[in-house]
Amino acid sequence: MTKNATFERPQTGQSASLELTHALTQTVYREARMLDDENYVGWVKMLADDLLYHMPGIETRYRRDKTDQVNDLTRMAYYNDNLEEIKKRLSRLETGTAWSEDPATRYTHIITNVEVEMTEKEGEYQVFSNFYAYRNRNEREEDSLIGNRVDIWREAGAAFQLVKRRIILKHNVLLSKNLNIFL
């Protein structure tokens, strides 16, 4: 495993039970459905109060380069948000003047390669997944965003809440004019 891969995917722990794995897999699918449907009210309910939602900007560097571009939260990022900051971003859609969101973008999130593991904290689980997010808008504008995620989900009553998400987009140059999407 290369150094970079270690940054992106922390050491793995013990696999969760079939039941937990099923429950959390369904959870990330449900979350994807909410994002596809722009059901942000429902989505925010799935986010924990102490959320860290992080998608670092990653430069192309040589393998020998030891710069930690993933864990260093002081570097440039697409997202480096807590829950309040996510809500601020979402409030733009409530203003009625987010012109570029009308007509709406058509979204599909495909979530795959889900693995669920135990963590050292009881009731918190690490979930690996890959995403393929497709956007299409207006006549023929389209783009694809592909990458991996590492999440921490916490049991909250009968459901789970997202505590931490690290998104690694595989682009160097974002091949899109904006990022009006959550991954």
Binding site: K88, R89, R92, L179
Partner: peptide
Amino acid sequence: DDIKDEITKGVMQTFGPGGTFEMDDGEN
């Protein structure tokens, strides 16, 4: 450092590709 962090987060939320200002510019 905390002011640098505040500014960095503020810029990313306004004028990054997912920023609340930047998103409407590229479209235009």
